[in-house]
Structures are given as C-alpha cells and as structure tokens.
Amino acid sequence: MLRGQRLGCLSIRKGGSVDTHVEAVLAELAALEDPRMRQVNERHGDDHGVNLTKLRGVAKARGTDHDLALRLWATDDTAARLVAILISRPKSFEASELDSMIREARAVKVHDWLVNYVVKKGPHAEELRVAWLDDPDPVVASAGWALTADVVAKRPELVDLPGLLRTIDAEMKAAPDREQWEMNSTLAAIGIHHPALRPQAIEIGERLEVLKDYPTPPGCTSPFAPIWIGEIVRRQSAG
C-alpha cells in the first residue's frame, strides 16, 4: 500500500480571504442542481444532482487549472470533485496524492473518473495498479482491477494473463460488488484481446455466472463476460 499524506478537506479560504474562484464554481453547480436527477444518481452511489453535460460545461469554462482543481477537490463536494478531475493536469500529481484521493473518492462517478481521466493518463498508473490490486479496501482494489483491465488490452507484457485468470476464477464470485465488477471487466478484456485464452475466459464466465442476470437496456451489451466477449469479437470481425 502506498503511504502519503491525505489531502483532507481544506477551507475554501485562500490566503485568509474567501476563495472566490471556488465559490463561483460551487455557486454554478448549486444553480444546476436537479432534485430528480439527484434521486436517480443516489441510487447509483453518486450524491449530486447535476447533469454531467452541464457539469462538463462548467469545467470547460475554466480550462486546465491544476491549482483550482486541488482546491475544488478539497471541498469534499462530489460535483466539485468531478469538475476538479476535468480541469486537473494528470501528470502533475504525485503517486501519494493519487493514493490519498482514491481513498477519499467514495462516490462511484468520482472514483471512475479519477481512475480513467487522471490515473490512466499520468506517469504513476502501473505503480498504483500494482499497489492497489491487493489493497484490503475493496473500493481501492477495484481501481487496481480497472487499471489491470486497461493493461490487459494495451500492455499485456506487464501482467501474467494465466495468473490473472486463476485469481479471477478463485475470487470473483465472492468479491464485493465494485471489485467484482472490475474483475469481470478484466476477464472480458482477456477474452476479447487474447484469442488463445478466450475459451478459458468464456468458460470461467459461464461457470461463475457473475452478472449473468444484470439488467441491460435495449441496444446495450450485457456485462456478463461470455456475452460481452462474444459481442465485441463479433463486431471486430465484422469491421
């Protein structure tokens, strides 16, 4: 586990005066709050009610501003943290900062964006992937598995693919929900990108039946690994 100082929740006062830039962002986000959207988001583990397209507009108006991103993150407000991720400079974070942030990112969308928009684009992704995979906190471990799925697709020489399949086979069925989801993503990535291991990946998915009954909207691909693998491979062959 990486050890670093936690960022904590800082005041929105800067240099003894009110941080007007942070307050302006918070005010814009408050004006965009939709109680009905908050209800929907809260069912998915996200405690905010701001339309993400509009939230991206708030971020776009600021451009890249890493210092403001750090101050917005410190507010501990979910919508503000999403803006912070969008305006941050991924390569400017230290590994210890990202380790602290992933432990603070309990909202699902914040966690997902932090991994995909910041960690994957920075220089510490592999170091953090290895550190997080075996973390006792399943939410942190899920970030390690999300990074592993990406490595399986893009840099498979960094991982032991048969070893990953053995771990998934032994642990995915009983894993906590968020960790299970990313382990399943890794299983699907192995089946999609590595034809020699595809039959084994499909067999594991069929036997464990993880996410087999997950409700999938029309037009979307089921996250059940055997279906997911088959559909993506079919599309690749057709293309």
Rank of each mutant, 00 (worst) to 15 (best):
G8K: 06
P195I: 03
R6D: 15
W73A: 11
V25Q: 06
G8Q: 04
L72Y: 13
R198M: 07
L147C: 06
E104W: 04
A174K: 10
C220Q: 15
M101H: 03
V130A: 07
A80E: 09
M172Q: 12
K154S: 13
G144W: 02
A84T: 07
S96A: 15
V139I: 12
E171R: 12
R155Y: 02
A225M: 04
K14I: 13
D19S: 07
D65N: 14
P217E: 06
P136W: 08
A238R: 11
L164N: 00
T216Y: 06
G144V: 08
I168A: 05
D77W: 12
W113T: 02
Q39W: 12
A30K: 15
A170K: 12
G219H: 07
P162Y: 10
I102Q: 10
G8S: 04
E127Y: 01
E231C: 00
R71C: 08
G15V: 07
L128E: 05
V110Q: 03
L158P: 00
I229F: 06
I102N: 06
P162D: 07
G205F: 03
P195S: 14
S185M: 09
I168C: 01
L26P: 00
A175T: 06
L147S: 05
A149D: 03
D46N: 15
E104Y: 01
A153Q: 09
A146D: 12
D135M: 01
A188Y: 00
L114P: 02
V139Q: 13
V151M: 03
A59S: 14
H66V: 06
L114N: 08
V233E: 08
I168L: 06
L128V: 10
S11C: 05
L211F: 15
Q200H: 09
L165C: 03
T20Q: 14
D135F: 00
S88I: 07
E209L: 05
K154L: 12
G122W: 09
Q180R: 15
H44D: 09
V25S: 06
A141C: 03
G57V: 02
D19A: 06
I102G: 05
S96W: 11
A225R: 03
I87F: 11
N41I: 01
W73M: 09
S237D: 13
F224C: 09
R207S: 14
V18W: 10
V233N: 01
T186L: 09
S11A: 14
M172V: 09
D177V: 10
P35A: 14
A175W: 03
W113A: 13
A131P: 01
E206T: 07
L164I: 10
W132S: 07
I87W: 12
P176Q: 10
A189Y: 02
V233K: 00
V118R: 08
A30R: 15
W73D: 04
R106K: 13
L161F: 01
D99G: 15
L98T: 11
T148R: 01
P136R: 04
L165E: 05
K14M: 08
P90Y: 12
R3T: 13
L165A: 01
V25F: 12
V22H: 05
